[in-house]
């Protein structure tokens, strides 16, 4: 290829490394790189220029609450290995859930869906940590068919941990946590329970924008929207 021809690729390569090309243009550069050792070497040489850019910004100390939230989430998920990432995408509830959330008055929720009744003694405790952050613990309603099952939501500001006990293991299925507000339900994580029926799910964020935390049994990889009736409901 002539030098003039390569100047075009060199211009494109710089834009490519800066992530400034369209998807099609990027693919064209990648195809060219596969065949052109000269440009591969040039890309390797130029790449540190891009890698230095993030270090050029003014360095700030992140807020300590961010670290606390992340570590709390990590520890909770490490303790409950099956806990998995919540999906980023906000989804609309399925028809049954929409009906339940929109049409059924809150006090009638448990009766209205028939499956849910107050199996755990409802309770609400509030505490204050050393750093002044308010924490609270909410006992959840659990499907009475799950005899002896309990669930509590330990809330810490916008995040929290949902702990369950007495839930049955279901091969090929997984428990999914949902945050509900108005007519919208957002996925907030997956978890499984151990042989004794205990499990936990960390909710990294979103409780400030939720009226209710719910759990349903879903296919093994989770669902974008609930496909079964909830087995746990915690009003927050």
């Amino acid at each position: 290829m002539s030098d003039a021809g390569h100047t075009r690729w060199e211009d494109d390569l710089a834009a490519y490394l800066l992530d400034a090309l369209s998807a099609d243009e990027s693919r064209a550069v990648e195809r060219h790189l596969e065949d052109c050792a000269r440009c591969r070497e040039r890309a390797r040489w130029l790449r540190p220029s891009v890698e230095m850019l993030p270090t050029s910004v003014e360095q700030l100390e992140p807020p300590p609450e961010l670290r606390e939230r992340l570590m709390r989430t990590a520890r909770a998920e490490a303790a409950a290995p099956a806990a998995a990432a919540p999906r980023d995408t906000q989804v609309r509830a399925g028809r049954g859930w929409l009906d339940m959330l929109r049409a059924v008055p809150r006090p009638a929720l448990a009766l209205g869906v028939a499956l849910i009744a107050l199996a755990a003694v409802a309770g609400y405790g509030i505490g204050t940590r050393g750093d002044g952050t308010t924490t609270s613990t909410v006992s959840a309603q659990v499907d009475p068919a799950l005899s002896g099952a309990t669930a509590t939501l330990e809330r810490d500001g916008d995040s929290g941990i949902l702990r369950v006990s007495g839930l049955p293991q279901r091969p090929g299925r997984i428990y999914e946590v949902w945050l509900a507000q108005g007519g919208e339900v957002r996925p907030a994580g997956l978890f499984q329970v151990d042989r004794s029926g205990r499990g936990a799910a960390a909710i990294a964020a979103g409780l400030d924008r939720a009226e209710r935390v719910m759990v349903s049994l879903e296919p093994a990889r989770g669902s974008a929207q609930p496909t079964t009736e909830p087995v746990v409901v915690a009003d927050i």
Partner: peptide
């Protein structure tokens, strides 16, 4: 694109 290349 030329300026990007020169800058890099």
């Amino acid at each position: 694109k030329g300026r990007m290349r020169l800058a890099m």
